[in-house]
Amino acid sequence: MSGVDMSQNALIEVDDLYVNYGKLAVLFDISLKINQSEVVFLVGRNGAGKTTLFRTIAGFLHPKEGEIKLKGESINGMGAYRIARKGVKYIHQDKQVFGDLSVKENLELSSYATGDYNWEPVFAMFPKLKILIDRKAGKLSGGEKQMLLMGMAIIGKPDLVMMDEPTEGLAPHVIQDLAVSFKEISKTTTLFIVEQNLPIIADIADRVYCMKEGKIIVEEGCREDIQNLCFEQYL
């Protein structure tokens, strides 16, 4: 991908990134930029490399070549927990919470890690969590688990929340609720989301990157084109 404008207020900058699984190359020449307060979506078919890109930014995979910068500082080779502490939260695709712990204990884990014990913003966004506070997280429904994961992610006021297919497998009315939550979270936090649900993307995306076979093939930054799903032809 060429022509990415690496401006000064970029939160995340990825530059000429190459990632391998052993000898197998999976990401090629990835460059992208996420500015503060943006809602950026990453789309593409299964196996395009979306999750690999997320895991690389989150520090679980280390690039073979290229650079990832967070607020101008290189985070290449940095441990995943240190990147998380710098304000990059990653919500995994599998919606796994700590099932044997209660909702309260799950939230406490986030608080211990960030030092932020104010849960009011979480309960304001997801009032249901307050009702379910003593329930074992393993007993929650898929939508409730996603709420809990998002609640845990926003504790500590992170700079960036990355979500990997947050609406996958959820009922339509739950997806609608989550879309409202995305909008709410995006008022204070930058969002980078892997998503297949095109109506949500059309509704809230500031920018969309399309991936195919380990490369970014299109960057769509025009709101009108996003609403008209012009990028769909590349999927």
């Binding site: 995943a80 927990y81 700590f98 712990l101 986030s110 500590g156």
Partner: peptide, 24 residues
């Protein structure tokens, strides 16, 4: 305590603990 809950959570899902910001 925080330590006890962190240890149990690490046993259940160490990767997720890292996502949250814990040094597993």
């Amino acid at each position: 305590s925080a330590l006890g809950i962190s240890m149990k959570a690490t046993k259940a899902n160490p990767e997720k603990m890292t996502f949250i910001g814990y040094n597993v």
